[in-house]
Structures are given as C-alpha cells and as structure tokens.
Design a protein around this nucleic acid. Structure first.
Lengths: 205, 205
DNA sequence: GTAATCTGACAAGCCGGATTACCACTTGGC
DNA sequence: GCCAAGTGGTAATCCGGCTTGTCAGATTAC
C-alpha cells in the first residue's frame, strides 16, 4: 500500500532522488574523477542517504553507465529530430546539420564530453560494450548519409563502414581535446573542421 | 625463482625485475583491467615480491604511466626513423609510410592499443596530461607533413592544427574499435582507410 | 488522538587490498 | 669455515570505504 508523503507520491520522490544522484554523478565524476569518487560523497552532493543510493543503483559503475547512456541518447535524439525535419534537403546541408547539432549538444555542458570520452573509458566490460554499441550506432548514421550522397552522385559507391568509424573517432578526439585544453579550443572552429573533414572523407574519389 | 646472484650485478637484476613487472602490467591491465588488477597479482605474474614492486614503482598508476609512455615512445621512434630515411621523398610517400609504420607497430601486439586507448584513459591527472602531450606530439608531426604538402603545392596554405588533432582522433578511434571487435577488423584495411582519409583531409581545398 | 506505516540518517561491522616490519637466507671477504 | 652485509619472501598490520542493521522521527489512515 504505497501512500503519499507530504503530498508527493513515493515514485515521484524516488525519481527526484534518482535525478539528483545522476546530477551528483555527473558533477563529481568529472571533477574528482570516477575512481576517486566515494559513494558517500555522491550521497552528500545529492542530499540523499546511502540507503537511497542502493535503492536506485547497484553500484557506482551502474550510475556511470546510466549517465553515459543518457548523454549519448540525448545527443542522438536531437540529431535524429533535426534530420527528420530535413528529409528532402541536400546532403551537404544534412551533414552540416548533423555535426552542428551534435557538437552543440555535447559541448553545451563541458562535463558531458569529459564523462563520455574520459571518465567512462576502461571502467568495466559492460560500459565498454555500451561504448561499442554507441560507436556502431553513430557510424551507421554517418554511413547512411554517405550512401545518400552516393545515391545523389556526389560521392563514390563504396563501403563507408571504416570511414564512418574513423569519423566518429575524429569527433571524439577533437572533443576530448576540447575539454582538456586550457584555454579551450573554439567550438565553432571544431564544428567547421569536422564538417569539412567529413565532406572530404565522403566525397573523396 | 632466480637464485644465486653471483655473476649478475644488482642493477641488472633490478632492471630485469622492472622489465618483468612492466610485462606483467601489460598483460594483466589488458586482460583483468587496470582497476581490478591487484599489486600482489602483478608480483605473482612477474615472479617478484611486493617488496621489489615498491622498489621500482610508487604505485600501480606509476607502472601504468610508464607503460603508456613506453608504447608511445616506441611507436614514435620507429615512425621518426622511417621518415628521416625518406627525407627527399614525395609527400604522399611520406604520409603513407608514417601511417603504415605507426599502424603496424601499434597493432603488432593487440595489448598495446588496448592499454593506450582504453585502460590508460581517465585514470588520473598525470596520465591525462601525458596523453595530451602525446596527442600534441603526434599532431605536430602530422602538421609538419601537411605544411610540407602545402609547400609542395599539393595542399592549401592554412592552419592544420585542428585537422591534425582530428586525424589523431580518427586513428585512435579506429584502433580502439580494432582491439574491441570480434572478429577483428583487417589491419591493412584500417591502414588504407587512414591513409586515404589523411590525404583527403590535407589536400581538400 | 492513536496506531500503523513508511522514511531517512547514522554508524558500526565487515572485507579486501596496500604497505611495511621482520626474519631467513645467500654471498663474498677474511 | 665464519662473519658482515645485503637481499628477498612472507606474513601481519593497518587503513579506508562499502554495505546493511537499527532506530528515531515523520506522516497518514481510522
């Protein structure tokens, strides 16, 4: 018999605690570092008891994995939404939009690339597998744009699998440097660089 | 068990223990994972006592950092050696050689890219700084090749800084996927892909 | 108003690994 | 052969964080 406390349902309070824990994870993992962050610190930051933590997550790794998935899913949804609105547009416009939306989404909060490309690397098998899945997802996305370009006659007909993986790596590398550099690299220069690189990679003979 | 230290100098035995510890680190960090590897396991694998471990390294992180530096330095030296022998060659030949030697060196032992691009990421500040230094080193290398190409008239005169960083990321991304995939991606396809991508990136208008 | 129920803070036990103190042993010098 | 110096392995200690048991307090139904 679940009953409401203080006018708020148990599920809602749980959801809020969960959200606060995710926020705390994003903050501490990217400042203190994942390995050095203690569960009690997460709970203090989130204003939650250790008991609550274990109600929501099985471990610190669990929390990290969820964050990683969340960041990728958010970026992916935005990019997909932007592209479905450009169904009939030219390939170059679509590619420009794809990269622009992606870079803008991920750089909006510097903690996102830090968590995605630094803290969530090499933690355990599950997160590595999740990483591979996301790389594949992004690569297939890029691949399908390349095939559109080929169909439109502005790119050769060939397999774009490795090219797509390489481009994902290029984006990842630039963003990882972006978040590590002081003074930071300019976001729009990065977006421009990636756009031109991708166009050159696809339209090359 | 090494008995009888007559004939063998203490420094040499130290050096051999150190080498065995580095080998053990390479093996265990890339199989068990860095975080899950215990110091006693390293010592068992290396046939060395914990006492010896602390004579050589201050911590597990120290050992990892040394391995990371070693792998990069080895690859770098080989690439530089190959290129100094091609001082007067054409730009396309130099670039092809650069990438070929690099990819071949790093993929010779699958544990190398695994350690470099997965296990050594996000461990601590020192290793991250070392990573940034190596990316910078490699990027400057690529940049100078691009400037050669510009001087030869086969590429436009512009800044190649971001392009170089992106290319380093592309190589990193491909090799990270290479070591993670089952069945593995073909090494020479990767080398070809990177070579063409780099040529396209540099010679683009 | 009261009892039943739920919630969250606290803290102590527990566990596992890092670190060092100790001792047995080897070696070369006398 | 015996002793001084140095070496290496083992085992005990120590530490720090994870995890859960407990309890006091808050809240609502009757």
């Amino acid at each position: 018999m679940p009953r409401a406390y203080g006018g708020v349902s148990p599920e809602q309070r749980r959801a809020e605690r969960r959200a606060r824990l995710l926020q705390a994870g994003l903050e501490l993992f990217t400042s203190t570092g994942f390995a050095a962050t203690k569960i009690t610190e997460l709970c203090t930051e989130a204003g939650v008891s250790t008991r609550n933590f274990y109600e929501e997550f099985g471990s610190k790794e669990d929390l990290l994995r969820e964050l990683h998935d969340l960041i990728n899913a958010t970026a992916f949804d935005r990019v997909r939404a932007a592209l479905t609105e450009l169904e009939t547009a030219e390939v170059s416009t679509r590619i420009a939009t794809l990269l622009d939306v992606f870079v803008r989404t991920v750089t909006a909060d510097p903690r996102a690339p830090r968590l995605n490309y630094v803290e969530a690397v090499g933690v355990n098998t599950e997160i590595e597998q999740q990483h591979v899945r996301w790389v594949t997802t992004w690569a297939e996305f890029i691949e399908s744009e390349a095939l559109r370009a080929a169909a439109a006659g502005v790119a050769p007909r060939r397999s774009y699998r490795l090219t797509a993986i390489a481009l994902v790596g290029a984006v990842t590398g630039l963003l990882r440097e972006w978040q590590a550099h002081e003074p930071p690299l300019a976001v729009d220069e990065i977006a421009t660089e990636i756009r031109e690189l991708m166009l050159a990679a696809i339209t090359r003979p």
